[in-house]
Amino acid sequence: MKRGVQIVLWLLVAGFLVILPQLATTNYLVNVMITTVMWIIFALSFDLSAGHVGAVSLGHPVFYGVGAYVTALVAPSLGLDFIGSLLLSAFAMGLLALVSGIAFFRISEVSFAIGTLGALIIAQLLANNAYDITGGPMCTQNVPRPVLHIPGSGPVTVVEPVHYYYLLLPLLGLAILIYWRLTQSRIGRAFAAVRQDEVRASAMGIYPKRYKLLAFIAGAAIIGALGSFQAQYITVVCPSELTISYTLNLLIIVFVGGAGSMRGVILGAVLFSLLPRLLEIVTDVPPAWQQLIYGLILLIVIRFLPEGLDSLIERALQRLRGTRTEAKPDAA
């Protein structure tokens, strides 16, 4: 019964997301939707390791930016199409996460966070300075757009934002599915064990490194695919895709929304993407003010809502269910 309700709820959400662009009157609104969905995917992939195994990879955008570069620089020469490029970037980033993870997970949690951040800085500096390969600050231009082969008609090049939106939705579905299956199964319990006490987890036969790697690689593959999407959507890849401000935004989204909670992370990403757009309608807020407000919100949430905004939802839901739980007191 309860499972049935859940499925219906998910189907409703999916249906809503499919219909949504039909309500959008301008490309601007569709772009806002695309950005929102991208931030959801970005944040979910980050939260897999930061929120669940406790490995705060401050260099997470590396997988996004390098994933984008892989699609821009390597995929065309291999003659890969949209999905092929996505898979290539996802695979390459998964592999990069495996190799770097084996090295990075030997060091302490603190060193891991700062070491990965160091890696992000290196990646951006390299992208900026290796003109011959990346074009440096001039960016890698003219990334091919996706071409769809629809039976019956010729190949169609995707240009319209709406169509990009529909290409992005399955990626969101996949990200949610992977996140859900990893964190809600017994693996999720091992994740929690590793995060809460690595030593004790080892004493119970759980090998911490395996689970850290699993979360790290899954997150990297997802975000690598998103980087590939971004490259084929904007058709330009710049060193700014490797910026540290992505890391800051991820931290704001995840820690304001609620680390380790899918609902919280999605909520955080939606608020983060939509709030400035909503503010724009009322008044013109300069970026510096926007960031300042985000910073303050982050500090306030950390101080007063340790589990993020998600804890508010949780409390509200519990109040709704209140009567039911009380009617069924714990017999044992």
Binding site: R189, A190, A192, A193, Q196, D197, R200, A203, M204, G205
Partner: peptide
């Protein structure tokens, strides 16, 4: 299997989940 001198439990797991985590890999 061993215990630790400075009691170690998984603080954010319920008592039951703590028990189940012990046979996670078993």
């Amino acid at each position: 299997r061993r215990t630790f001198q400075d009691v170690r439990t998984f603080p954010e797991m319920t008592v039951l989940e703590n028990m189940l985590a012990a046979v996670q890999q078993h």
